[in-house]
Design a protein around this nucleic acid. Structure first.
Lengths: 232, 232
DNA sequence: GATTTAAGTAAACGATTGTTGACTCAATGC
DNA sequence: GCATTGAGTCAACAATCGTTTACTTAAATC
């Protein structure tokens, strides 16, 4: 008898929570899926690493029961992959914007660096997840992340190939150059994520140093001669 | 009665293990301390990250009881700091060797890159730990690691200042240049650690690309003019 | 309006976790 | 030789863990 009462009560609770206009069964499903992703990102905002998160605490901060987790993901590893997709969708969106909007012919370097770092700062949770799992995650996660970065480098190399000043670069060396530039940005981003957004001076220096490094790399590229570098 | 027998047995075991010549009470203590550090490093060789290691499994692979852990460290965080010291001692040793031995005047770039990557490859466990915890560890661990890297950059900047070709660099810009060079090495190292040592072709490419990037950076540095860069 | 579907709950399971207190017993100090 | 010290074991503790099973109940289907 007691149990019947308790059950009735606990299930009535559901009715309260879900008076949101855009309902429907799979709209609801997608909403709690997002809640799970957001819960993981939220927990990662702190000191924790993904591999130290427990399924139970993710479901708890998402507001559902542990068992319900399996309606959305097969396990934490599966959630990790979904988070990678989610996070890199952020980056892809930025790249598309940059490609469509076009960058100013003058101050390209500063504009590129600033645009990216601004964006990363505005999507801390996603980029922090990537930074954390790039080396410490499971090998499947690491590979997925590295694949995305390689893709990014490849696209940048194509963009760079259109600059007449880089005509002397072999395809191979273009990739190396793009890799260097991407790593400068990544290093700056990782530094940025570990700096409190309120510390304006520190942020300024990160921007400034990244821009200098990028400028230095480009200065070197202008002097480069692929025919002199034994490749392959 | 049963318990008495079991206890006697289990304690006799100790006598077997420890017939090592260099005995003495604190020699023994230091030996199991090392066993704990090595156990953690061994567990980190795999997919695991430090924050996901449990105290119990570290003690288990070290061959001692969980309770005995507290004779050496106050907790896992404490062990983490000890691991950082341990790991950077590796790096310091390399730097000292390089400073004493001196690098060849010709092929400095290649020699530097090769020397470092060889060393990192030979001390995988330590460098892998640093790479993993650089961003995903506790903030105390991250700060400790970053401090060491800053120190490294500072020393490199001093070394660089002795090159006449870099006379036009302001102290500030020297730091930025050194930072860029260190990050090139770190990026290559991290790539190296994720590559099976048996894949000779992949290793070769990592070495080659890192050397190219370093050469490109130096080419840029040769053209640099600090008076043109507005430094805050 | 009755039936089916599926996202969610509730409860239990065996493991494993960090930490503590009482103990043993070999090495040390006197 | 005797007393002290301290690195280690052992056992127990309450929490938490991932996963499974049986269930409810609102939404979708017919």
């Amino acid at each position: 008898m007691f149990t019947m009462i308790r059950k009735t009560r606990s299930h009535r609770r559901r009715g309260e929570e879900t008076q949101i206009p855009g309902d429907g069964r799979d709209a609801r499903k997608q909403r709690t899926r997002r809640a799970l992703l957001d819960a993981a990102l939220q927990l990662l905002e702190g000191e924790r690493s993904f591999s130290s998160l427990s399924l139970r605490e993710v479901t708890k901060t998402a507001g559902i029961t542990p068992a319900a987790f399996y309606r959305h993901f097969s396990g934490m590893e599966d959630l990790g992959h979904a988070l990678i997709e989610d996070s890199f969708a952020s980056l892809h969106q930025l790249m598309r914007q940059a490609r469509e909007g076009g960058l100013p012919a003058t101050h390209i370097i500063r504009a590129s660096v600033t645009t990216f770092l601004d964006y990363a700062g505005a999507h801390r949770a996603h980029f922090r997840f990537i930074a954390k799992e790039r080396f410490s995650g499971s090998s499947a996660l690491r590979m997925a992340i590295r694949k995305e970065i390689r893709l990014w480098i490849g696209e940048l190399a194509v963009d760079l190939s259109r600059f007449p000043a880089l005509g002397r670069f072999s395809a191979d060396d273009l990739q190396v150059l793009a890799g260097l530039m991407v790593h400068v940005i990544i290093a700056a981003t990782e530094l940025l994520l570990d700096t409190p957004p309120t510390d304006r001076a520190a942020l300024k220096r990160i921007y400034r140093d990244a821009e200098k490094q990028m400028r230095l790399v480009i200065l070197g590229a202008a002097q480069w001669d692929s025919s002199r570098s034994k490749s392959g």
